[in-house]
């Protein structure tokens, strides 16, 4: 564990708390892509099956449980509790385009051709693109509530912080995880446009609006 990974994980935790807070405070999941949230739930479930047979640390165990439980809770909030506030007609990204390639890539580029290893690899590839439906929705509506942008920023910062973590681990432990690094670069890259607007506008008190 190093400071970058710890801060990254805390940013990830923060993003989830911000999202739940947004839904409960506004009593609405307007502006949130159900598809992206469902993909994250799938990411956590497929990645964390090792909970059942591989002990790493208490920290690791608790965080994994939290991410699985909170992602399912968010799906519950969106699908049942605040269902009327979710508008599927603007959440139209075809997730088959993300699920299919992630699955086939995980069959080809993996560390070991075993069920759990392929599930892990699939989850890494899928996570890197799972934000697409959310960004697509943002693009369509052209604007977002400020609190939603804080959620996205925390999520992007989490991924960005994993990059110095890998550099640090390469230097200090000689550890390289090419699959995670490649996917992490892609995932962080997807946030660059968003970060630009967030840091230049939202943090200066302006509304998140994309140029027409």
């Amino acid at each position: 564990m190093n400071i970058f990974r710890l801060l990254g994980d805390l940013a990830h935790l923060a993003s989830i708390f911000v999202l739940i807070h947004k839904i409960q405070k506004t009593r609405s999941c307007r502006g949130i892509s159900f598809k992206t949230q469902a993909l994250y739930a799938l990411v956590f479930v497929t990645r964390y099956v090792d909970l059942l047979y591989h002990w790493i640390s208490l920290y690791n165990f608790v965080m994994k449980l939290f991410f699985m439980a909170s992602s399912c809770y968010i799906l519950y909030l969106m699908k049942f509790r605040y269902r009327p506030t979710h508008d599927p007609s603007i959440d139209t990204f075809k997730i088959e385009y993300l699920l299919g390639p992630s699955f086939f890539l995980s069959l080809i580029f993996n560390y070991e051709f075993s069920l759990t290893e392929i599930m892990w690899t699939f989850s890494i590839y899928l996570e890197s693109v799972a934000i697409f439906p959310q960004l697509f929705m943002l693009q369509r509506t052209g604007e977002a509530e400020t609190i939603t942008t804080h959620y996205l920023a925390a999520l992007g910062i989490y991924r960005a912080l994993y990059l110095p973590n890998w550099i640090y681990r390469y230097i200090t432990q000689d550890m390289v995880d090419p699959i995670a690094i490649t996917a992490g670069l892609v995932q962080t890259g997807l946030y660059l446009d968003f970060f630009y607007v967030y840091f230049t506008k939202v943090l200066h008190g302006q509304k998140f609006e994309l140029p027409a």
Partner: peptide, 10 residues
């Protein structure tokens, strides 16, 4: 990739 002690990152 041989010496993976499981995936320790989240």
């Amino acid at each position: 990739t041989g010496d993976r002690q499981g995936h320790d990152e989240l």
